[in-house]
Each structure stands twice: as C-alpha cells, then as structure tokens.
C-alpha cells in the first residue's frame, strides 16, 4: 500500500529533511509516525501526497510509483488519499455540509451522490445535527470531525492525519483518535503523524519513530497499563 525505499529529501536551502527512510505500511494498518518538531514527519506526509518530490529513493502508494505520476495525473492520484491537518483547514465562509460537499464537488461527483454521501459522513463523525453551522460556531474537536468527514467522503484508501489533535484539548483529542480508529476498522489505512505520546502508548498500534530525518525505530507498541 505505502512503500518508501531509501527515500531522502533535501530542501532547496540545503536542509536535509529525511535521510534514507525505508517504510512499508500494509493495507488496513493503523500507524503512528512520531518524532520531535522538525524531525521530518510532515515531510513524509507531503511526499506521500506528491506535494514534494524526493531527492533520492522510490515511493510507492496504492501500487503506483509516484515518480511516474505526471502532473496531469496528480489530481486522480490524490483522490485516493484523504488528508487531515492540525489546523483543520476548513473553509470559514461555508457551513459544515458545504465543507464536506466541497470535497465531492472538487472531484466532480454527481449531485445525487453528494446529497447521499455527505449526510452519511456527517452521521459517521457525529455532526449530522450541525450541518448548517459555520466552522467558527463549532468547537475545535467538532471542526476536526468535519475535516475528517471531508477527508473520507470520497472513500480514499488511505487517510493521512498530520498532527490531528495538535490544537485540541485532551477530551476532544481522544474523541478524534477513537474516530480514526473506527475509520481504520472499516478498512481504511490510517497514518497519524503526532508527537503526543499518550495516544501512542495507549492505542496499541504500530509506531515509527523518526529522529532528525532518520527512522530510529519501527515497532508494535503494547497498550499501556496503569503500571506504566
């Protein structure tokens, strides 16, 4: 599903973001990528979306070598990857329904399909009753739920979440994590970039640790107990 082989990325200013990263994430997995700020986590997310091009190495996403994806093919490629951001990135002048429907309009989905899918997604994230609210009328957690609904409405095979709980209090952050887990259980591959170790310790998932652009560990973390 996702494969990085000896991938390095050096920015134009000469900053080495990641060095010789090797990863293999199988379909249906839930993976945490953890590391300190500036460790290269977000660079990996951007590389997976073909927002950035690697300096060296090969990246395969959904069975495609992304180096071979032409500029014209990028939109179609990205439709199989849902993205969630730390700062939600909702359109402030459109209501909840419109924000989610926006993702379907962008991929030129039929109107009928939009009317059917958007309420379903809003129900999934528990916001069906707030479909008319503007983002500013929602709490941080609710805004992130809208962002997740938007990321999933086109039924992508992969969901990339870049610090999805970074702007949320503990209670809302947990709600989001449970939601991501539920989405994963429905079959979507979920990759969560975070530096919040509480979730990582307690969710019993695969954890890839990056330090200064290098993968330093890749392991299945056992669920924490009170004794931990």
């Amino acid at each position: 599903m996702i494969k990085l082989e000896h991938v390095s990325k050096t920015y134009e200013a000469g900053v080495q973001a990641i060095t010789d990263v090797n990863l293999h994430i199988r379909p249906g997995e839930f993976v945490f990528i953890i590391g300190a700020t500036g460790s290269g986590k977000s660079t990996i997310i951007k590389l997976l979306q073909k927002e950035l091009t690697p300096t060296h190495g090969k990246i395969i996403v959904n069975g495609r070598d992304i180096a071979k994806i032409t500029r014209k093919q990028i939109p179609k490629f990205r439709r199989n990857i849902g993205v969630v951001f730390q700062n939600f990135r909702l359109l402030p002048d459109r209501n909840v329904y419109e924000n989610v429907a926006f993702a379907m309009r962008v991929v030129e989905a039929p109107k009928r399909e939009i009317k059917k899918r958007v309420p379903q997604m809003l129900s999934l994230v528990g916001l069906a009753h707030k479909y008319r609210s503007l983002p500013k009328q929602l709490s941080g957690g609710e805004q992130q739920r809208v962002a997740i609904a938007r990321a999933l409405v086109n039924e992508p095979k992969i969901l990339l979440a870049d610090e999805p709980t970074g702007n949320l209090d503990n209670q809302h952050a947990w709600e989001i994590m449970r939601l991501l887990e539920e989405i994963n259980e429905r079959g979507t591959t979920v990759v969560v970039v975070t530096h919040n170790m509480d979730f990582v310790r307690q969710m019993n998932k695969r954890v890839i640790t990056i330090k200064k652009g290098v993968v330093v560990s890749d392991e299945q973390v056992e669920e924490a107990t009170d004794a931990d």
Binding site: Q49, E51, P75, R78
Partner: peptide, 16 residues
C-alpha cells in the same frame, strides 16, 4: 489561496 491549496490536496483538476 487556502481554498485553492485544499482543492489541490483533495484532487481537483486544473480546470476546476
């Protein structure tokens, strides 16, 4: 700009 960036990440075609 933000809306355009989101469109691009979601998979909007150039014409859209």
């Amino acid at each position: 700009r933000e809306e355009i960036a989101i469109m691009k990440l979601i998979g909007a075609k150039d014409t859209f």
